[in-house]
Amino acid sequence: MKCDSLTRAFTLLIRRDLILAMRHRAEMANPLLFFILVTSLFPLGIGANPNLLQAVGPGIIWVAALLAALLSLDSVFRSDFEDGTLEQYLLSSHPVSVLVLAKVLAHWLITGLPLLLVSPLLGVLLDLPAAGIKVLFVTLLLGTPVLSLIGSVCVALTVGLRKGGMILSLLVLPLYVPLLIFASSAVDTAAAGLPVTAHLSLIAALLVLALSLSPFATAAALRVSLS
């Protein structure tokens, strides 16, 4: 019985966040536009030499993805914090970590998934070979949830602060480093025609680790922020 109500709370929470996002479509499009804009600024800045673009392309796309994720993170708990819903989550009889996981999953569906879908297009823009684009898609598929999960811990720590934005980037970006390294070197390796199973396994390991640990850290951080 209790398990059922937990599943229900989980799905309801995701549905609520998705509906809220659909009602604010412009806000939802912002991180995506940012992602595309930043990526397309690079060829203008460093020159459109195809060899150069191929060499730096994976790094550019991944750095742009990190920044877009950073930009969208503030919205995970912000509105819930402001109208007091967040306190109701903490007071509810369900484990906070599960509710947090629902919030993060909804956040990924809203911001990570569009990014993922548009990434092959950016790969083409930056002259990546077909093998590289395929692997880029897989790394983003495995990696963007990690961005949301790790980011949720830091955003939970800064949600009560007035000037949380700058601090958030200082907290989040160092933690994103391993993912950036593994993912962009996976795309590089694939573009060179070498096997990438090891890279992808490492990113998947990061995902499993983040998925199993970060909801608890986020729940603890929310408790501290709202105390």
């Binding site: 000037k163 907290l171 850290a217």
Partner: peptide, 26 residues
């Protein structure tokens, strides 16, 4: 920076402790 940003000292200390633990895994 996080410690400096949170006014209440006990809250700041606990937030910092969580961040340190997240960092030590990383």
């Amino acid at each position: 920076a996080l410690h400096g940003a949170i006014e209440d000292r006990r809250t700041a200390a606990r937030a910092v402790a969580i961040l340190t633990l997240v960092g030590v895994i990383n």
